[in-house]
Design a protein around this nucleic acid. Sequence first.
DNA 1: ACCCGGCTACGTCATTTGTCCTGTCCGGCG
DNA 2: CGCCGGACAGGACAAATGACGTAGCCGGGT
Lengths: 231, 231
Amino acid sequence: MTVQPGTSTGTSTGTIGVLVVDDHAVVRRGVVAYLEALENVEVVGEAANGRDAIDCLESLQVRRQPLPRVALMDLMMPKMDGVEATAEIARRFPAVRVVILTSFGEIERIHAALENGAAGYLLKDAGPSEVAAAIYAAANDDVFLDVTVARRLAQKMRSPHSGVAALTSRERDVLVLVAEGRSNREIAAKLVISERTARTHVSNLLGKLGLRSRTQAVLVAMREGLVPPPT
Amino acid sequence: MTVQPGTSTGTSTGTIGVLVVDDHAVVRRGVVAYLEALENVEVVGEAANGRDAIDCLESLQVRRQPLPRVALMDLMMPKMDGVEATAEIARRFPAVRVVILTSFGEIERIHAALENGAAGYLLKDAGPSEVAAAIYAAANDDVFLDVTVARRLAQKMRSPHSGVAALTSRERDVLVLVAEGRSNREIAAKLVISERTARTHVSNLLGKLGLRSRTQAVLVAMREGLVPPPT
DNA sequence: ACCCGGCTACGTCATTTGTCCTGTCCGGCG
DNA sequence: CGCCGGACAGGACAAATGACGTAGCCGGGT
């Protein structure tokens, strides 16, 4: 976690403070380089994970320093997942808009992030102009979505009957466990239900997803971002 | 693909030319920012994927311009995988050292990359100093490995009897197909063998990996980088 | 009050998967 | 040459998986 010294006199009204959150130093460097080219944007801090980001905001708050207007944040970080961090920031620091900047466009994570209060979603192959647009939009209480993200989201809305969206919450629970390599028996134990019931859920979700085996379900769950890729 | 204009008079002996290959513009920007801080290093081009990188080298060659001494390259790119690109560069442009800079430390990909002629392996949470060290090492015909990568590699060498290394090549073939969600019957068809044989292979590889179901095998195959995560 | 959808559970059945053992064929190696 | 390990194959069997139908329970909406 890094906080710029409070000596910065440039934090006047009209300047957009940005907190950059990413576990990869290279990416932070690239983002900062993007932002430095923008006149009325100032990077007020960097954090390597969600926990650090929260800490950073807290310490700014107790020091009565202005909070950043925007947090530019990766998903998939150690310590604290971007989705969780987004939720907590939206809850505890409602003045801070969270813009997601991540490598993968996994529909479930996109959905989760936006549901948790994200004000934008960028993919890492975005150019400087897109990052700028997203930040200005967020600062303006608008929402900026990457084109391909928006398209995928639209597709999801159009056909709620394909994909994990069609699953009930219980079926999603089961799918997550399937995607962790658990057997029906183990799933039953974890969820405190009968093994037959677990099998029923598996059978139902396979049907809804149009799959023929739990192995394929694992792949779908990963593709949709329902479970993180194994480390 | 971007090539710096040949007007650069600074490409004197002693200067290390670097080609940056990554599909994420942000990452390229960050890397370039790193490299700009180094005195005797010059970025001679950028490419968004393996194919572009090769093209870039070709075009430099036909124009009789000096090839970069080092290519800093991501794995997991569209168009052409980093491993393939490394192999082709090592074969066709032996003067160019390839340094891998990637997010994940998947032991199988590390192994494949190094086997294909990579001269370094960095993780993306590397700081500027590590990137610099890797580039200087590569330019010097040395090999630079990230500490955690080196450790994992050492672990692999120490215990060849855990992990995918213990598998026969045929078993690896089968594992790849398992990890694609194929059934035993489909695997048999793909490999033109009997289903019983496919089952034997699956059973044997599960035993060697200490697993109890093919679903877990999927996770291991992903973790080891034997198959790319589903897009 | 009534219906519907979701969670629970069970029974039955066909398939798939995984284990163990046996055995053949072939190529490399001492 | 004999030996060994790996690919291939099959039999026998146990266990897990998945499909389909049925049914009780409960909460939310009409």
